[in-house]
C-alpha cells in the first residue's frame, strides 16, 4: 500500500516536472520567435500630414488587397475588404490615401495596428502575441505526437514477453484470394 502511494507521488512529481519543462520550452520558443519578428520589423515612416494626395491612380483592387488582411473594428471577425458598413468604407478610403502616398502594404497595416491595436489584423503583429498565437498549436501538436510515439514504444516493450498469445488475432484481409474466400463463407453463413 505504502509502495503504491510512493509510486503515485513519484508519478505526480514526474508529471509536474514534465509539465514545467513543456511550459519552459513553450515560453522559450515564443521568446525566440518574438525576437526574430521584432528584429525583422522595419521602422515606420509617416508622411507629411496635411498634404492633399491624388487617389485616382489607386485601384479598388489595390485597396482591397491591403484591406483583406485587416479586420473591421465594429463588426468583429469580418475582413475589411468585404464589410459593407460605413466605418469600413471610411477605412478603405484611408487605405487608398495611404497607398497614394506611396506607403507599402506592411506600413499601412502597421499604422492601423498602432492606432487600433492587434485586433484589427488576422494574426497579431505584436511579436509576443504573434509568437504565442502561432507557436502554441504546433507545440501542442508536438507534445501529442511525442506522447503517441512513446506510448507505441511502451506497448512494444510490454509486448515482447506476451507475443505468443496474440498471433491468432492477426488477419490479412486484403489479400484478394482470402478476401473472396471470406466473403463467400460469410454469404453462405447468412443465406
Amino acid at each position: 500500500m505504502k509502495m503504491a502511494t510512493n509510486q503515485r507521488i513519484a508519478g505526480i512529481r514526474w508529471g509536474a516536472r514534465l509539465c514545467a519543462r513543456i511550459v519552459i520550452v513553450w515560453a522559450f520558443c515564443i521568446w525566440v520567435v518574438q525576437l526574430s519578428i521584432a528584429s525583422a520589423q522595419e521602422p515606420i515612416t509617416t508622411p507629411e500630414p496635411g498634404a492633399v494626395v491624388d487617389t485616382s491612380a489607386v485601384s479598388d483592387d489595390a485597396v482591397n488587397a491591403v484591406a483583406a488582411s485587416l479586420y473591421c473594428p465594429v463588426c468583429e471577425n469580418i475582413p475589411l475588404d468585404v464589410c459593407p458598413t460605413e466605418a469600413c468604407i471610411q477605412w478603405r478610403e484611408e487605405i487608398r490615401i495611404q497607398l497614394a502616398e506611396g506607403q507599402s502594404e506592411q506600413q499601412i497595416i502597421t499604422n492601423f495596428v498602432d492606432r487600433y491595436g492587434d485586433r484589427v489584423v488576422g494574426v497579431p503583429e505584436d511579436p509576443l502575441l504573434r509568437g504565442l498565437s502561432l507557436i502554441t498549436p504546433w507545440l501542442i501538436g508536438a507534445v501529442v505526437l511525442v506522447a503517441g510515439v512513446s506510448i507505441l514504444i511502451r506497448w512494444r516493450r510490454g509486448q515482447r514477453g506476451t507475443l505468443a498469445t496474440t498471433t491468432g488475432t492477426v488477419s490479412t484481409l486484403d489479400d484478394e484470394a482470402s478476401y473472396r474466400a471470406r466473403l463467400e463463407s460469410d454469404l453462405i453463413k447468412r443465406r
Binding site: 479586420y71 488576422g122 509576443l128 498565437s133
Partner: peptide, 25 residues
C-alpha cells in the same frame, strides 16, 4: 479551438490585449 477561443481569451485575460485570429491563422 486555440485560434477561436484559446488565444483570444488568454491574451484578453492575462495580457489585456484583444486579438483576432482570422483566416490568415
Amino acid at each position: 479551438f486555440w485560434g477561436s477561443f484559446g488565444a483570444p481569451v488568454i491574451t484578453e485575460l492575462f495580457l489585456g490585449e484583444e486579438i483576432t485570429l482570422g483566416s490568415q491563422y
